[in-house]
Design a protein around this nucleic acid. Structure first.
Lengths: 129, 129
DNA sequence: CATGGTACGCACTTTTTTGTGCGTACCATG
DNA sequence: CATGGTACGCACAAAAAAGTGCGTACCATG
């Protein structure tokens, strides 16, 4: 693999080998925040950076920006600059990103049930435009 | 939260707060190897430690043992000692573990499609009894 | 007892991920 | 120009996850 050859999206690690398709998914949307960010984007047509930040209270701006940049780079998320006053950016799932809906939906439902079974408090932030 | 009070399963971090059900799922089955281990267990009634190790070639025994222990602790996996010659242990998903099937299936399918789109090689190991 | 198979556990070490603190760039407005 | 809003980027630092090397415990068999 020559350094001049761009890596296919989703392979952050050169020479990464896969022996199971689930490994691929974990490689692309693994980590603490990426699935959460995607789950929120799945529920809304478009979201501003600040809206995402508010919907995910425990994420740092740094992590949010970084996750979004990476998802944009692999064409799972579109980044849409909006020239208003004040100007801002909006993020939306691409068609490719929307193909993650079954994964995210299943994760959401399982998490809901697990939380109920184990009496975990889940306090969603109210969405605000 | 007194140290004597056992944490509910799935909360490795005391005081962990959740604002989205997907965060819960990530907390329980996040990480590099847990989803992979679970995916293999989903495909087989029972698997020996050594079978899992062979099916997941890049995992260390340490990581495999650790993941299995944690999954057993939160009752997602059953650990079944088998007295044969040689003796071994078998692992199987609990009913609770099997509730993860939609998540794992969705992850598998998405990973397959992503790999195809991005020309990633996925080389599953042939199952051997 | 010695040996082999099996499944780990321990003490570190390395790698990866996430977080902290601050500053920057851009745009619009008064 | 100053100010405010917005969305980050940078240079570390801290935390978490994963890996390494070795050894141990248990069981069965000869």
């Amino acid at each position: 693999m020559s350094p001049d050859t761009p890596q296919p999206p989703g392979t952050a690690r050169p020479g990464r080998s896969y022996h199971c398709h689930v490994e691929v998914t974990v490689d692309v949307i693994g980590g603490k925040w990426t699935p959460v960010v995607l789950a929120h984007l799945k529920e809304h047509d478009r979201l501003r950076f600040a809206q995402l930040r508010r919907l995910i209270p425990d994420i740092t701006e740094k992590m949010l920006a970084q996750r979004l940049r990476e998802l944009e780079a692999i064409q799972i998320v579109d980044r849409i600059p909006v020239s208003t006053a004040p100007p801002h950016v909006e993020y939306a799932l691409t068609a490719q990103g929307r193909s993650l809906a079954p994964v995210l939906q299943a994760m959401w439902e399982w998490g809901r049930d697990w939380a109920a079974t184990n009496r975990l408090a889940v306090d969603p932030v109210q969405f605000r435009h």
